[in-house]
Amino acid sequence: MDSSLSSQESIPDDIALKIASSLQVGDLCSLGSCSRFWWELCGSDYIWESLCKKRWPVLALEIESYNNQPHEEWRVFYIRKHNEMAGKAKGIIDFVNHCLAFESIEVGNYLKAVRDLDSILFGFEDVYTFFLKSKHNVLLNLIGLHYCLIWLGLPGGGILLTVHWK
């Protein structure tokens, strides 16, 4: 294969879009840094709108109203929403860590943390991104897992297969 061919000439656009659409956000951003072709393709509203709907299905009404008005790019919306969720997650993490400063957490505070996840409409990817990490106290992992099992109704086996601590 001639290495002088660009990605655009060697891969049909529909196949390239299918490849980019199947990636996780981090991998999509990495692919976008490979060339101008991939940068433009990986920044397409089609891909980022799909990522928003997949990550925040419980925010469907907000996304639909966003869809029906002139708006910023979907990638910008995704980043803004991610940062908003990160701030909300930090609030819950700080609350739990404050409770743990006294070496235990009362049941009421534990349940408050779980209910707070529900009140801010966290989806599984948000919980996975912010709570199900080996760097966290095991109690934060448990709160995230409890929320996924009870409030999101996800099957335990599926969650445990997705989460792999290193």
Rank of each mutant, 00 (worst) to 15 (best):
K18T: 07
A101T: 01
H98E: 03
N67E: 14
A20P: 02
P70S: 11
E73T: 14
W151D: 05
A89D: 06
R36C: 03
S6V: 10
L152A: 04
L59C: 10
N97L: 00
P155T: 03
L152F: 02
Q69S: 08
G157M: 06
L31M: 14
N97I: 00
S6I: 11
A113H: 03
S10R: 15
E62K: 12
I92T: 05
Y128N: 13
D94F: 00
E49S: 14
S119W: 03
N67F: 08
G32R: 06
I11L: 14
S35Y: 04
G156D: 00
Y147C: 08
L41W: 04
G26V: 06
E62W: 04
I93C: 06
L161K: 15
R55W: 01
S134M: 05
R80Q: 12
V138D: 08
M85L: 03
F130K: 13
C52F: 06
E40L: 14
S6A: 13
D2E: 09
L142A: 13
Y110H: 08
V25D: 12
Q24N: 09
N141P: 02
Y46K: 14
R55I: 03
V107G: 02
L149P: 03
D27K: 07
S104D: 04
C99W: 02
W48V: 04
V127P: 09
S4Q: 12
I92H: 06
G144N: 07
L23S: 03
S65C: 09
I47Q: 09
G108A: 11
K166R: 12
C34Q: 03
G157N: 12
N67M: 12
S30D: 11
G158F: 03
C99A: 04
S7W: 15
A89K: 11
N109G: 05
E73N: 12
E125R: 15
F37M: 00
I11R: 04
F95I: 00
I143E: 05
Y78I: 01
